[in-house]
Design a protein around this nucleic acid. Sequence first.
DNA 1: CTGACTTAC
DNA 2: GTAAGTCAG
Length: 276
Amino acid sequence: MRKKTWYTLLALLVVAAGYWLETKGVDRESYLEQLHVDWGGNTSKNDTIYQDGSHFLPSSTTGQIIHHKGYSLSYSEPHEQAEWVAYKLEKEHLSGVDYKRPYFEMDDAVISGSAHWRNYKDSGYDRGHLCPAADRKFSKEAFTETFLTSNVSPQEHQFNSGIWNRLEQKVRFWASRYDGVYVVTGGILKEIDITIGEEQVAVPKQFYKIVLDYNSGNPKVIAFLIPHEESDKPLYDFVVSVDSLEVISGIDFFSSMDDDVENRIEAFEKWENWHF
DNA sequence: CTGACTTAC
DNA sequence: GTAAGTCAG
């Protein structure tokens, strides 16, 4: 074959590979069906419990619950961020491609308007993902969707890239190990001392994360409450009960769950059942 | 992985 | 605004 032919074939291969990477992951149809059904279409359906045990949305203290395709959130306008972000992390979600990070955008679904990214500019704080970008890498659409300011809290870089990052990686490990987990996460929006930007985005003093394993036999839950500062301590040092987290945050986390199950798992503060 | 920043078009 | 490359925890 002549050189020119080789180059042509090579170019075609590159284009094909690019297209493949672009569309790789769960295809759009099943992606939408899976995620949308899991979390329901609107707030009024939150008291429904699906047979597969999904749909564990927390209560909203702000009355503004928003459902995106890849996650749901409750937006607190006074704090210009979500009080919680909830999503289901499937085992299959984990395989993915490295997408280029897009720019953060405002969330049009937030009626009152979510924070502008300029609030974070030169603030010294990271735009810290609540639903991590790495948890939505199964499609470019899902990945991009995490770059909304409604999915972001001001975080110190040392914290975000440190212990918080460690926790997020642990959640992905659990999702793989336990065949999928439910995640609820956010900052504690109480006793705010520091705000950033013109819109006064609140800087939480603590961040929490709740992980629910509803797939491997007996449901089990683990909750973390971590001070907004870098720490070298092991993650299990920050385990708390869901009950205490509900008191601190004012949010009812598993209100749609069977009371029996809810009462059984929420009081637990033990982490021995979880692999670290 | 988690990010910000700079430079080019 | 988009794209690509660099740098840092």
